[in-house]
Design a protein around this nucleic acid. Structure first.
Lengths: 274, 274
DNA sequence: ACCTCCATTTCGTAT
DNA sequence: ATACGAAGTGGAGGT
């Protein structure tokens, strides 16, 4: 049995199938009219409406409307899902502790339920993260400054870990903060805190440079940089331009599941008509 | 027709029904084996596995595995969904511009499709937000300091809007930053920037106080507060004390309400997660 | 468990 | 459109 589906089931039928799905470790999708109550870190109440409820075997619960990437209500992983029928109506409660939070979905109608053993590859390799930017800086330190020499990454300071720490051509300390996208005042503040922390560590009078490496900064961030005597190095393309990232054998080889399918050919598509 | 469901459909059938669902403005749930490619602000590749794909009429696409609140891949609202069959296999592309991003889901098997007109209430009333904390501070200004008098909220400064601005018993300016939860160094930096900005606005020598109102702070944040001469006011309950928290129908209270014979409800059926 | 920070953050509001 | 900060942020990695 791969997938179970109930079309316009009774509330009772839905309950049975939900329990069976929980027992199997299936992921469940339920369409229907419902209200939602949440109480925990905050509290909320959602009036009646047609929605999609997704329940995962890891204790995640998602209530989706027809809009938005973010669920209108949810429960993070680690909950226990409980289903029950009260007054002839299906209720699903997802509960967790630490923090104590409860989500309760009360259905007035259940239109559909589908349950399926969702398993397999769940780790995705993302390219273009801050880690990639760091790799690029370590590969080409001159991006930061002529004569810059990286010494350490994630170097611990009083103010937290410094992305890249090194010295300039004169041997003076340089603190580098990396951001993969356009930054505002927060990132400047972060860099400022790191620079101050390193200044406290160094002998009095040692000049400590702070460099923000990012595609661009907002106007206010630029002001703040100037005020605090920090520099900006604008790097717009994280992924190397012409340089195919030397990863070759290192990174791209294996994903997590079965190697399975080359499946279909990798020709650049397409003419999707929607 | 309220809900459409296809059990183990062919790829072609799925395509037809997807297109019909898009045309109707339905929200769609698809279970099946697939791979996922994403390219946009970053890039990623997800190997084959059994997953849940959700497509919304507002252009949202979500690819969920059996774990986590966050989709393993997604596309935010504003996309156009395109479905096609290539080499006998269903492909769904969700594309947007600004930034240019593409998500492509290639199915090797389609186990199930369900489509439903998800509409209705999507605005949720949340209690316990920063706005509530602000209301509480304005209601009881002495929480911040004896003799504190709020003058303005969201007061604009060079460094951004100040949550609550006012004066202390001596008439000196006070900058208040509100946080609904335990805060780290970032919030202290934020408050520090606001205080500095106000100091620049005021006549030289005017002492400007900075107060962080939050349930608690981390050790490092506490140090930073001390360094910058800022204060902490610990407020643990956002929701007013006196107000009983939504005590509803929780455990078995109302059970007997509808008396008589109607009690065909299965009362305490429960089941836990897998 | 707590702390710190990244994120394809998303989301809302004001400029 | 961009900017700025909140969010029930979530999630990873370290201590």
């Amino acid at each position: 049995m791969t997938v179970v589906s109930l079309h316009e089931p009774s509330h009772r039928e839905t309950l049975w199938e939900l329990e069976a799905a929980f027992a199997r470790g299936d992921t469940v999708s339920v369409f229907g009219e419902c209200t939602v109550e949440y109480d925990g870190r905050a509290a909320s109440s959602l009036g009646p409406g047609a929605r999609l409820l997704v329940l995962k075997p890891d204790g995640t619960a998602l209530v989706h409307t027809d809009e938005g990437r973010t669920p209108v209500n949810w429960q993070p992983p680690g909950c226990e899902h409980h289903a029950a029928v009260r007054d002839g109506r299906l209720r699903v409660r997802s509960v967790r502790t630490n923090p104590a939070e409860t989500l309760e979905v009360r259905f007035s109608t259940v239109e559909h339920l589908a349950a399926y053993a969702v398993t397999g590859g769940r780790s995705v390799e993302v390219v273009g993260s801050e880690a990639d930017l760091k790799a690029r800086v370590l590969e080409v330190p001159s991006l930061v400054a002529d004569g810059f020499e990286p010494l350490e990454t994630e170097r611990e300071t009083d103010a937290g870990p410094v992305d890249v720490f090194g010295v300039d051509a004169d041997g003076n300390p340089v603190v580098v903060e990396l951001k993969r996208r356009r930054v505002g005042p927060d990132a400047v503040g972060q860099l400022g805190r790191y620079v101050s922390a390193v200044e406290r560590e160094e002998p009095d009078g040692t000049p400590v440079a702070g460099v923000l490496v990012a595609p661009s900064v907002t106007a206010r961030a630029k002001e703040l940089l100037a005020e605090e005597g920090l520099e900006l190095v604008a790097v717009d393309r994280l992924v190397a331009d012409g340089s195919r990232p030397t990863e070759g054998d290192d990174e791209g080889a294996e994903r997590d599941a079965n190697g399975a399918g080359g499946a279909d050919g990798v020709d650049r598509d397409e003419s999707g008509r929607g």
